[in-house]
Amino acid sequence: MNRSVIPFSYQGAQLLGTLDMGLASGATGLLLVSGGNEIRSGAWGGQAWLGAALAREGVPVFRFDRRGVGDSEGENRGFRASGPDIAAALAAFRAAAPHVKRVVAMGNCDAASALMLHAATLPGLDGLILANPWTVDGENETAPVHSAAALRRHYLRRLADPRQWARLLAGKVALGKLAGGLRTAAAPQAASALAEEMRAALASYRGKVTILLAQGDRTAQLFASHWGADPRVIGNPGTSHSFADAPEWLLHQVLAALGD
């Protein structure tokens, strides 16, 4: 497996990407978009691992730092404004690997949201793999609150556990916190303007879309509650937002999506 650093530019800022390619590289490549303010190696090096694993399977993989993140110059303007960075990375990928005829982009968390918002305007993007998309309005939120549906499942499990009743009767449960949680669980799910914006933007995209959800992850649960039923969703029972507890499952799903 060969790994090389690829510099490219956008509006005077130099950005850096990493290209992973095996000795035998196919005509379908993966553009990996980092979520949050993570560098291109991803959380706990997950994207670097995935890039290497896919390269060994013959899939060229391009990862990059958007402006103002990691090794890239410029101002970090957040995921909503990252469309031009993704377009520049896509062009750099195609220039560095001209044998690649088909490119699928993958993003986790707000990188998935960015792809949903911008994919229809990105030339030459043939498919999307969207993992645990972010649906909380406001980019500066550190973590989403529990969805009402997730809280209802949580309290139903606790009500069925005799040990929890014993803790309640013994005064070991914070009643104020319990009451607040029950009120949230009983409330209807608040709408997400970001989710509806993503839905509208994705509706005009014509490539194949695969959505991967870690069903025990709060971000994924919130997305599912806002998004509703979708035949494109593939779930995993794990709890890791970056699928650190299911790397082989993730690799299998990405390979399957790339092969369609």
Rank of each mutant, 00 (worst) to 15 (best):
A120F: 03
S225E: 15
G78F: 02
K172M: 05
A105N: 07
Q11S: 07
H99I: 11
D245E: 05
A201V: 10
I6K: 05
G74Y: 13
K172P: 08
G176L: 12
R163L: 13
I234Q: 14
G235N: 14
L23A: 12
G22M: 04
S192E: 12
L122E: 05
P7K: 01
L16N: 08
G259N: 15
G181V: 06
G138W: 02
A160S: 11
A246H: 07
T18K: 06
T28I: 05
R63K: 08
R102Y: 09
G46L: 04
S113M: 07
A160Q: 14
S204M: 07
R102L: 09
R167D: 12
L168F: 12
A203P: 11
L251F: 01
A256P: 08
N236I: 03
H241S: 13
N132W: 06
E141V: 14
E38L: 03
A166H: 14
S204Y: 07
L16T: 09
L222A: 04
R80E: 05
G171P: 09
G22K: 02
D260V: 10
A13E: 09
V145P: 08
G26P: 09
A256G: 08
L178C: 11
R232P: 05
D260S: 14
A257S: 10
D110V: 06
S4P: 07
W165T: 07
H154N: 15
V233L: 13
R56V: 09
K177N: 13
S34Q: 09
